[in-house]
Design a protein around this nucleic acid. Structure first.
Lengths: 344, 344
DNA sequence: GTGAAAGCGCTAACAC
DNA sequence: GTGTTAGCGCTTTCAC
């Protein structure tokens, strides 16, 4: 049988199509009795509103596009990140009755901005969620803004007072981790900085410094090493730190990969983790639970962030009013086996 | 400025909207000169056809839905699989000018079938790609078929003569791997079977038997162990095989995780891979390149499979004719360091 | 509370 | 080759 239309429902229920539309869209001003009649007709005909018609008439596409950097498929850590971002965005879309379009794109490609603009003009989504690191690329952000489509950035670097973003409290939670390590009795807590281009990672360093201060510990260059977010750089940094005259008893790395590098070096040097050295990371990637001992780290609430981003878009559409403040989704400490009390 | 419509373009170009439509849709029967006029007008007005209007009028949504099992985000191997499937589907969608909607769903959930049906009736996609293992769940397949939406299954188990699927040549390529091992001089080539519920994995075992036969080697229960696709089961199977009186010199596991388990056990037993034992896997997961020695394996052409699936859908739509044969995307041997010649 | 009428911006069918 | 006309199935506006 051909699909039922709103006219069929109206006929069967003995009302006008406008009333059917009211029922379907949960609009007010329908008598309970009328509503029931309509709902029965809908059920009887297995009526489903036609999205295309609805979109055309309402000037909304009920589509959200999630744009993120396209990794090569083999970079599995990225795969985990992406799946989690999708998860959150999908969750929100289902709640708000929107569909999600995914659009991975090559970061480095010179044409991204132009391509994205063309894409958006064609699709006409009702909103866009732009994930890091693309959310930090000015020409990409600008190109999207030029289309006039509502945009929420996830983990943007600079915000310039623009409240249309979602991020986590990297600084605060890194401070918390540092205080946690201090509370375990550690006095010499080292930090391995991450890739300088990565904004979140800079906030983590600041949080580390806050944590030292709040714990009454002095910061020292002797306790700070630089990495680039890779395992290898974590190994190098660990070697550097552990070979100093007065080595740290705890190392807090700005991401999990570098923390894994630290654990590898400790193993090689015969230093027992956590008994002789506590190690903490950031991000809570899958590896954190897989290595031995399991890594204490900070979970990055990726799916909650994209979920919040989509909800900001759909809510503001409903209320016809832009959000006036960002959403900050707090990260949480994942205390596992790689950290323990230090007996001075 | 408000978006330009087809009427604006027609006015500016001095033609009818039908002609504009012809140009936009690359239909024949437009004089070159007219085409140029129209194209200029399009460029000048930055005209983009309105998808909703087009969809409504053409009764096509230009939407493909990719449905797959929703893993918990932490199961990172799945994340890699999913990203690769998405990649292929997206590639094809871009080529054919369709959009891709992703729909992860919980395999175990009793309502999947009903929910999927409701989803499809609402979205009205032009086609559906159903990935394994869902492509093997009869009630899911049936529910989708009931909606009348064109469906292509990826790696289905039974096909019942239905040609609407894409798969890889598991059996043939596993045979090839076995012959490769034999060609290296191995006489005692063991096989670790995978989870019995997993169809592809059964085909691999058959391919192994084919390979032995084609290499003039006898199959023997002594050389066959059962696993369940997990690393742990690979370890158990390896222990069992390697402690037999006449242990194998090569072990071929039905997936990479189990092969990794084999390598772990070999390491523990002091057996050198590949010098004393060759190990081969299946799937080419990220781990295969990360472990030491890098694992010889069979790559699973996931992204090519979903790409082919989407193209089957879009092509059949264009030609208004269902595909009459499945697409088989061949897997390929990835020869790495875990296999080497055996000097008898 | 409810309904009638007028589009939304395209494609399809057919006329010329 | 090109144009005309009639919808597609909804939402919107406004009248009652």
């Amino acid at each position: 049988m051909p699909k039922a239309t709103i006219d069929d429902v109206a006929n069967l229920a003995g009302v006008s199509i406008k009333t059917v539309s009211r029922v379907v869209n949960r609009e007010p001003n329908v008598r309970e009795q009328t509503r029931e009649k309509v709902e029965n007709a809908i059920a009887q005909l297995n009526y489903r509103p036609n999205k295309a018609a609805r979109n055309l008439a309402s000037h909304h596409s009920h589509l959200i596009v999630l744009i993120y950097d396209d990794p090569s498929a083999y970079e599995i850590p990225s795969a985990g990140f992406i799946i989690r971002m999708q998860e959150g965005a999908l969750r929100a879309c289902r709640k708000a009755n929107y569909e999600l379009l995914i659009h991975p794109c090559r970061y480095r490609n010179k044409n991204v901005a132009v391509e994205l603009k063309a894409l958006i003009e064609q699709i006409r989504p009702d909103g866009i969620v732009l994930a890091a690191p693309l959310s930090n690329v000015p020409r990409v952000v600008r190109a999207i803004e030029e289309t006039g489509t509502p945009l929420i950035r996830v983990s943007p670097g600079k915000t310039d007072g623009d409240p249309l973003y979602v991020s986590t409290n990297d600084r605060e939670v890194s401070c918390e981790m540092t205080r946690y390590l201090a509370s375990l009795g550690h006095k010499r807590i080292a930090f391995i900085k991450g890739h300088p281009g990565h904004k979140a990672v800079g906030n983590r360093f600041r949080g580390y410094l806050d944590g030292l201060e709040q714990s009454g510990l002095a910061a020292s260059d002797e306790l700070i090493a630089a990495g680039d977010n890779s395992i290898r750089s974590g190994e190098a940094a660990a070697l550097e730190l552990l070979e100093r005259r007065d080595p740290p008893t705890a190392i807090f790395a700005a991401n999990d990969d570098m923390a894994a590098g630290v654990m590898r070096v400790a193993d090689r040097l015969g230093i027992k983790v956590p008994d002789e050295l506590s190690v903490a990371g950031c991000d809570d990637i899958a590896l954190a639970q897989q290595i031995y001992p399991a890594l204490t780290t900070i979970n990055q609430p990726l799916s909650q962030m994209t979920e919040a981003a989509v909800l900001m878009l759909t809510d503001s559409q409903r209320k016809k009013k832009k959000p006036d403040s960002p959403t900050i989704v707090p990260g949480t400490l994942k205390l596992r086996e790689s950290t323990t009390a230090f007996a001075n």
